[in-house]
Design a protein around this nucleic acid. Structure first.
Lengths: 207, 207
DNA sequence: GCTATATTATGACTATAGTCATTATTGAGC
DNA sequence: GCTCAATAATGACTATAGTCATAATATAGC
């Protein structure tokens, strides 16, 4: 690795750390990009060589944590437990990433959810695709085992589950539910209803 | 009504119309608040006496359409049809408000979904409360008729249904589904699964 | 109708995200 | 180790959302 690449990585780290520190200290809106640049010891313009805009600083902070959390969650998946517990295990890992910084998390989720185009969109899409690719087999296995109906394809079921997770998360981020309620009872209820609604039709039960 | 109030209403209308025209013509981001102020024939500062910030111009545009659509939808509710058709009727009316202006709708939904405090938050909250208040009786009636289980309270069921609507709407606004697919099949599938998951436990069927 | 007070309108101004022409640094080829 | 092309850094600058002290206007009391 040449000096170029080394310097680049070092600058990115400094920017990421400066952004996180200042965001936590003063809040996202109250922190200016100039302050971050100064704290990271780079010029204003340099900051925008590393991120396209301010929201992308949030991506810089969250993306690696989320990736790591998801990898770990799937590595430690309780495969012997019922599907719903596996789902709660994975989605719960995402909740735990956001838990220590709810205000930043809200800004991040907002930015992520509505991005259109740009680097952030690509990363977001890539993450979602890879996440779905790991979720789908869980549902397929459940279908194969006859514990889940086959009226709806596994990818559809996975997307709906993610939607329910997103709604539970949003309830917390909005203050409509506290963390524990959203992460456990709300999310669990949503998924229980979904799983029950997708249960296979009983043998000998018409239609 | 004195000259004050008359002038106020007239200015608000001019601002609303100017904002809509320009947003549709050039897009939300590409339209500056100064352009809107000029088109509405008021000073820059005046604009911000009528709205707190740029996103609130979207609220000005959508809120009355949404209110009217919801009132009409409930007035013409097909009460004799199955619950799911009633739900599709109401949520479909919301879809139809957004249909003619998907780009603006996306901006509006983004702004609404994540507001914290301010006039827009209050209006948004008030709308949601009144909307929920009209939805809840539909579910209560269904429970009373024994067609819906009582494990989960009606307000919870209503909130989950709204979440599912929101996800179907988002799928369209993101381009993950076209309008018709989102409004009919996606939304219907979501609600069907939910209703099936909430079906009452059959008599003589343990637990 | 006149004055005093409250309300509303104004636009120059401020704050800040993001740009871009200029300058500095790196590394490859010799 | 020198030259030069490619890449990266810089910070003055631009664009625009939103503010606020000042000016204009409406209403109430007399």
């Amino acid at each position: 690795m040449g000096r170029r690449e080394q310097a680049r990585q070092d600058k990115e780290r400094r920017i990421r750390e400066a952004a996180l520190t200042l965001f936590l200290e003063k809040g996202y809106e109250q922190t200016t990009t100039k302050e971050i640049a100064e704290a990271a010891d780079v010029a204003t313009g340099t900051l925008f060589l590393y991120v396209q805009d301010k929201p992308e600083l949030l991506a810089l902070i969250f993306q690696e944590r989320i990736s790591a959390a998801v990898d770990k969650a799937f590595a430690r998946l309780p495969g012997h437990r019922p599907l719903i517990d596996q789902l709660l295990h994975v989605f719960g890992a995402l909740f735990d990433v956001y838990r220590p910084m709810p205000d930043l998390a809200r800004e991040f989720v907002k930015a992520q959810f509505f991005v259109r185009g740009g680097k952030m969109f690509d990363e977001s899409t890539r993450f979602r695709d890879s996440f779905q690719a790991r979720m789908i087999p869980l549902f397929e296995a459940e279908q194969a085992a006859g514990r889940l109906g086959t009226d709806y394809p596994a990818p559809f079921v996975a997307r709906m589950a993610f939607s329910l997770y997103f709604n539970a998360l949003s309830a917390w981020l909005h203050g409509a539910a506290d963390f524990k309620t959203a992460r456990t009872s709300l999310l669990r209820s949503f998924l229980e209803i979904q799983m029950r609604g997708l249960a296979p039709v009983r043998k000998g039960n018409p239609s």
